[in-house]
Each structure stands twice: as structure tokens, then as C-alpha cells.
Computed example of a mutant assay.
Amino acid sequence: MYLLLVDDDERLTRLLDHMLRQAGHTVDVAHDGRMAVALMQQGDYDLLVLDWMLPYEDGVALCERARASGFEGGILMLTARDALEDRLEGFAVGADDYLLKPFEPEELMARLEALGRRARRPLDGRRLQVGDWVLDCDERRVEHRGRAVELTQREFQLLELLMRRASHSVPRELIYERLWGRDQVVTDNALDATLRLLRRKLSRCATRQPIETLRGLGYRFTP
């Protein structure tokens, strides 16, 4: 799944970001409401994880903004507020679930998996199709004209990132951040090797290589 994690506790977000990536999810992280709004306008998220108390714009306002814009994925609120009226306020603007702080990261993971299964977003929202290429985020399956392509987890994450931004350039810096995380030290060889293997596998199914190199800009998926 493709998630947006919004919390001003950087230590917590680093931990959750790592756990979610290890579980095979793609994660964007924001530490304040302003950054979250910018990412929400760009990303096609399956789930939002919103802390209640945030600088610039709080989680309730972000939740309301997301629903008003037509977002149909799941929304999980993180909060230290346990009063009934607070929970009702969040549900009233479109939250699907609550998790009280402090919490065990494993419980968050379990709630997100459950929320992903019952999210109001249609199944097709997690099924990307760009030209003849189809990527099913739930089944972690890639096909080209009905022919399956076997990918590793890292290759799948890279292809998903490129397909979600099809026809637009994706810089290497963004790929490093999304696939390995902000705090991970990764050499250029790691990305080059992943990209080379992914291209090789895609070329077995199509006569035209869909991943272009844009010198000085990054890469672009063009079917």
C-alpha cells in the first residue's frame, strides 16, 4: 500500500517508516500540516496516518480536507486525547479508526492492515494501469498484456513509484528516499543494480523499454 504518515515526532516516524517499508509498503512522511497538504496534493495514497496535534494544520483539519477533496482511502488518527467528544469529532470529519498514544508499533501495523482491507476506496484505486502495464498493489503482481512479470519487493516498489508518476520525471533522490528511507546510507550502485534488473525483466515482456533515463532529471515511465 501507499501511505502518508504525518507526525511531528521524528523519532517515531523514523521507526514506523522503517517498519512499514520492511512490510513492503511505500511511505511518504510529513512532520507538519503544511508539508502534509503538499504531499496530499501530489500523492495517490491508499491510507493516511494523521497525528492529531501538528504544527500549522492539525490532523482533524487534514482529515476533513482529505475527505472534502474526494479521498476515499482509510484514515487512521493518532492522538493522546481519549475523551469521547474528541473521538466523535474525528469520526465526524471522516476518520476511520483511532489509536491512542502511547502505542505499540505492532498494533499500528495490525490496524493499518485491517484498515487497508476494509477501506472505502474501490479496489481499482490500488490497481494501476499505464498503457498495457498493470500493477496490482494488493496482490503485488505486475502484468503486461496478461503476461506476469516476477519482481522482487524492491523492484516492485520502484516500478510502483514510476508508474504512479507515469510520464513525469522521478529524480534519483526521491527514489532513494521512497525505497530505502531518509536515514539509510545507500550507494549509487544499489539503485543502478535494482533499475538494471527491473528493466531487464520488463524487456522480456515488451518490445519497448518503458523506463527512460532523463539525463540530469532522473527516470520516467512511458509505456
Rank of each mutant, 00 (worst) to 15 (best):
W180A: 11
R165L: 04
A148W: 12
V134N: 08
G90K: 07
W133P: 07
R126W: 06
R178E: 14
E113A: 10
L128G: 05
G94H: 07
Y176D: 05
E104F: 11
R145W: 10
G116V: 07
R126I: 03
L115E: 02
P122F: 09
A119C: 13
V170M: 02
L174D: 09
Q153V: 10
A92L: 06
Q129R: 15
E139I: 13
E173A: 15
L115F: 06
T152A: 11
E104P: 02
S167D: 15
G125L: 07
L162E: 04
L162H: 02
V186K: 13
L88T: 13
R178Y: 12
A114Q: 12
K101N: 05
L112A: 07
R178V: 09
I175P: 09
R111E: 14
L174Y: 09
F103T: 07
Q153Y: 00
L151F: 11
H168Q: 14
G116W: 01
D183T: 10
R127Q: 15
G181I: 05
D138F: 09
R140C: 06
M163Q: 04
L100K: 06
A92P: 10
G181F: 03
A114G: 05
G131I: 03
D136A: 08
R154W: 07
Q129I: 13
V149A: 09
D183E: 13
R178N: 04
E89G: 07
Q184P: 00
E173V: 15
L88C: 13
C137D: 05
G131N: 08
L135V: 12
F103W: 11
A148G: 03
R141N: 14
Y98N: 10
P171T: 12
R120T: 05
P102T: 10
S169H: 03
V93L: 08
G94W: 10
R147W: 06
T152H: 10
V93Q: 05
L159K: 02
L112Q: 00
G116S: 04
E104C: 13
D138H: 09
E143W: 08
L112C: 12
R126Y: 07
D138R: 11
P105K: 08
M109K: 05
D124G: 11
W180Y: 14
A114E: 02
A148M: 12
E104T: 12
V185T: 15
